[in-house]
């Protein structure tokens, strides 16, 4: 199981800002280790964000997302106290779901 995400969500006026830090190696499948063996690709492929039970973002990611991915999104129509649920799934079927509350 991967390490938890860090999710920060806060209201700036009438816009909710959501920032997510995921803990993931994001191997491209092109890197070689010290012994010269290719490190197999291992990367997040899908991410979703739900706020107050409604899907706001669906993302698909490839190997060109940096290690330990950081994402920022914004939405209107949310309020402080709404629950934010973030999900990711990688190419090996590992997954992680974490929650935060909009401050």
């Amino acid at each position: 199981m991967a390490d938890p995400m860090k999710i920060r969500a806060s209201m700036k006026g009438d816009v909710a800002e959501i920032r997510i830090l995921m803990s993931h190696a994001m191997e491209t499948g092109q890197r070689k280790d010290a012994a010269g063996n290719t490190v197999p690709a291992h990367f997040i492929q899908n991410l979703t964000i739900d706020v107050a039970g409604k899907r706001i973002v669906e993302g698909q990611t490839g190997t060109a997302i940096a290690r330990n991915p950081v994402f920022g999104f914004k939405m209107k129509g949310a309020k402080a106290g709404d629950k934010v649920v973030v999900n990711w799934v990688d190419n090996k079927g590992d997954k992680r779901t974490d929650e935060a509350t909009i401050a």
């Binding site: 816009v15 409604k54 993302g59 990611t61 950081v70 914004k74 939405m75």
Partner: peptide, 17 residues
């Protein structure tokens, strides 16, 4: 690199690395 769809009030904005 990546692709994002927005709905239910999400602004069409993304920041990533």
């Amino acid at each position: 690199t990546s692709h994002y769809s927005f709905s239910n009030g999400a602004l069409a904005e993304v920041s990533a690395r």
